[in-house]
Computed example of a mutant assay.
Amino acid sequence: MAEVSARQIAEDLRRRIEAGEFPPDARLPSETQLMAQYGTKSKNILKDARKLLEVAGLIVSKHGQGVFVRRFKRYLRNGTKRHLSSQRPAGTSPTQAETESQGIQRGRNLLAVETLPAPADIAEHLRVEAGTLLVCRQHLITLDGDPAQTADSFFVADQVQGSRIARMEEIPSVHAELAAVLGTPLTHAQEVLVARMPTPAEKEALALLPGTPVVELTRVIHAGDQPVEVTKFLFDGSWHRFVYDVPMD
């Protein structure tokens, strides 16, 4: 009889996890127990099977404790309603309002505020020449203490110089500040999402577990016909759900 393969073991363990035999946070059987269950004497086959499950994002190894089924707690991000001030408590940002309503503790760390030449893709979104000076505000967002997203927001420097947006300080609502600086309301936003695997630097920045994808979201905010802010978000795919209400006719 041919020896069981690593892929066969991984597929069977996946089935058992999905069937609820091993619920989230449950410890998988020990190496010795799994070898007996699957009739193999090869530790390498078992190691390869667990690697397949790690890459699939189903399990996580904890040094000195064992291998556990991964638990996912996802924050629901409502792309349709989150920027409507009428849909959230006064003085709260969209992320703050959403996380508080879902029982998630949000942290926001302002990492840097700098003036830099516009990269080509950001310049195109803002309809300015490449190299135009922009103010960039960089944030790291944590959810229940875990790094969960980064956000780099770009503004035309000539429009925001001298305002709080250009200074190294937290702002309760940067959009309210931007509307006040421009003297005109912000009217709509466009979002484009791309799911992909992270770069090594992104894995480190978000402390991503093996097999975790990221979602790169580019949001362009307009005041009337004029784009006035571009934000590049990078989301830990294991922490987020994205919801949109799409009209039909």
Rank of each mutant, 00 (worst) to 15 (best):
K62P: 03
L76R: 13
F233I: 00
V214K: 01
G183L: 06
Q226S: 10
A195K: 12
A56E: 15
D225V: 06
Q226K: 13
A123Q: 09
V194R: 15
K62R: 15
S163E: 05
V215N: 04
G66T: 05
L116A: 13
T184S: 13
V181F: 01
V156T: 06
L46D: 05
A90E: 15
E54W: 01
R50N: 11
A123T: 09
P89R: 07
L76C: 03
G107R: 02
S5M: 00
P185A: 00
R106K: 14
G39L: 05
G224Q: 06
R70M: 06
Y38R: 00
F155V: 00
L140W: 07
M248I: 14
M248P: 02
D236W: 00
V194H: 15
G107W: 04
K73D: 13
L140S: 09
K203G: 07
A205I: 02
M1D: 10
R77D: 13
H175V: 07
E170I: 10
V156D: 01
G79A: 07
L110K: 01
E114D: 14
P200D: 14
H83P: 00
A148P: 04
V246R: 13
G79K: 09
V128F: 08
P198G: 06
A123R: 09
E191H: 12
L234C: 10
I221P: 01
A176I: 09
A157S: 12
K51D: 14
G39E: 08
S173Y: 05
A201R: 13
D25M: 06
A26H: 10
G183R: 07
P185M: 02
R241E: 15
E177I: 06
D146K: 13
K43Y: 11
E98N: 01
K41P: 00
R167D: 09
E100M: 11
A151D: 11
A19H: 11
P210M: 02
H63G: 09
L134H: 06
T184Q: 15
S30N: 06
G145V: 06
L193C: 10
E18H: 11
G131D: 09
L52D: 09
S93A: 14
I171G: 04
S173K: 02
I165K: 04
E229V: 04
